[in-house]
Simulated assay, not measured.
Amino acid sequence: MSRADTMDRMRRLELLAVQLKQDSHCTVQDLAEAHGVSRRTIARDLALMRAQGMQIDADRGRGGGLRLDRTWGVGRVNLAYGEAVDLLISIAVAERMDSPMFLASLGSVRRQLVASFSPEKRAKVERLKARILIGVTASTYVQAKASAPPKRVVQALHQAFIDQELLDITYQREDGVRSNRLIAPHYLLLKYPIWYVVAFDHLREGPRTFRCDRIRAAERTGTSFTLLPKKAFEPTLLNDDLSI
């Protein structure tokens, strides 16, 4: 087994332990589909987990489920780099919103996460944090008309933002008119609880701000872009009416 295969299996075992701890009814087939492996692979993983002392209970009979004994702890949390970055940025957003509640331990969590990165990755995370902007709270009018964006849109926008990649989107204005845009997502702006993407719009050939919940479809292009300075977007950011 190669080093990559070994690392993949170790990561899968960690995720299996978490999943079995959380889900009240989970079958081998469910686990195989969730992790993109065969039932035999999952069976071998479960056998190894039991050999390591994990108490995995199984219901007998057709459709029987699996679960990790509720008294068993899953141990330390091992995050993939992307997960750690997301958590660190979320902590930074919470701190910058200056909420007095539940912030007592965030500094300690942030320091531990940062310490787990190499200097190169720390610098990359700092650049990402600088591209997330916090504005004033959205008006009640805007909040009343907001909805959660589709999961696929969030995933595509999230990755394009991190990788500095052009994004094809379908955008719907407040009046219902839709248009297809090619955008470079330079910054993300939170006017709580509404997220906006501050982008260079290649259709309009200039900076534009789009409400994330009005993006109906998004597809990554694989084409990278060069980050522009924040001052290039200042006219757009100074516009209080961001409900386009």
Rank of each mutant, 00 (worst) to 15 (best):
Asp175Lys: 03
Tyr187Phe: 15
Asp168Asn: 13
Thr223Cys: 09
Ala199Trp: 08
Thr223Glu: 13
Gly222Ser: 10
Glu174Met: 12
Trp195Gly: 04
Phe200Val: 09
Cys212Gln: 00
Val177Thr: 09
Leu167Gln: 05
Arg173Glu: 10
Arg216Tyr: 07
Arg216Lys: 13
Ile183Ser: 05
Thr209Met: 15
Leu190Asp: 02
Leu166His: 14
Val198His: 07
Cys212Trp: 00
Lys191Pro: 00
Ala218Ile: 07
Ser224Asp: 06
Leu188Gln: 04
Gly176Thr: 02
Tyr171Val: 07
Arg208Pro: 00
Asp175Ala: 00
Glu174Leu: 14
Gln172Glu: 15
Ser179Phe: 05
Arg220Tyr: 11
Ala217Thr: 11
His202Cys: 14
Arg220Ile: 09
Thr221Gln: 08
Phe200Ile: 10
Tyr171His: 05
Phe210Val: 03
Arg211Leu: 14
Tyr192Ser: 01
Tyr196Ala: 04
Tyr196Gly: 00
Phe210Ser: 02
Leu188Arg: 04
Phe225Trp: 02
Glu205Met: 10
Ser179Glu: 07
Val197Leu: 11
Lys191Arg: 15
Gln172Asn: 04
Ala199Cys: 14
Lys191Phe: 02
Pro185Ala: 09
Tyr171Glu: 06
Gly206Ser: 05
Thr221Met: 09
Arg211Ile: 14
Arg181Met: 04
Ile169Tyr: 01
Glu219Phe: 08
Arg204Ser: 11
Arg216Phe: 08
Tyr196Ser: 01
Arg214Pro: 01
Gly206Pro: 09
Gly206Ala: 08
His186Ala: 10
Arg216Ile: 14
Cys212Thr: 11
Ser179Asn: 06
Ile169Ser: 04
Phe200Trp: 15
Ile183Cys: 03
Ala218Met: 12
His202Asn: 12
Pro193Tyr: 03
Cys212His: 00
Gln172Ser: 05
Leu190Arg: 03
Arg214Val: 01
Leu189Lys: 06
His202Met: 15
Phe210Thr: 00
Arg181Trp: 05
Lys191Glu: 13
Tyr192Asp: 12
Val197Ile: 13
Leu189Arg: 06
Thr221Asn: 12
Arg211Ser: 13
Leu203Ser: 11
Cys212Lys: 00
Leu166Met: 15
Leu166Gly: 06
Gly206Trp: 15
Arg216Pro: 00
Ile215Met: 08
Pro185Ser: 13
Val177Glu: 07
Leu203Asn: 08
Thr221Tyr: 02
Tyr196Cys: 06
Arg204Ala: 15
Asp201Leu: 04
Ser224Arg: 11
Phe200Leu: 15
Ala199Tyr: 07
Pro207Gln: 07
Glu219Val: 11
His202Ile: 13
Cys212Val: 15
Tyr192Pro: 02
Asp213His: 14
Leu182Val: 13
Thr170Tyr: 01
Val197Cys: 14
Tyr192His: 03
Phe200Lys: 10
Thr209Leu: 12
Thr209Pro: 05
Arg181Pro: 01
Tyr187Asp: 00
Ile169Leu: 08
Pro193Ser: 02
Pro207Trp: 02
Tyr192Lys: 04
Arg178Phe: 06
Leu182Gly: 03
Ala218Trp: 09
Val177Gln: 07
Arg204Lys: 15
Gly222Asn: 10
Glu205Phe: 12
Val198Tyr: 06
Asp213Ile: 12
Leu189Gly: 03
Leu166Asp: 14
Arg204Gly: 10
Pro207Val: 11
Leu190Ala: 03
Pro185Asn: 07
Thr221Pro: 06
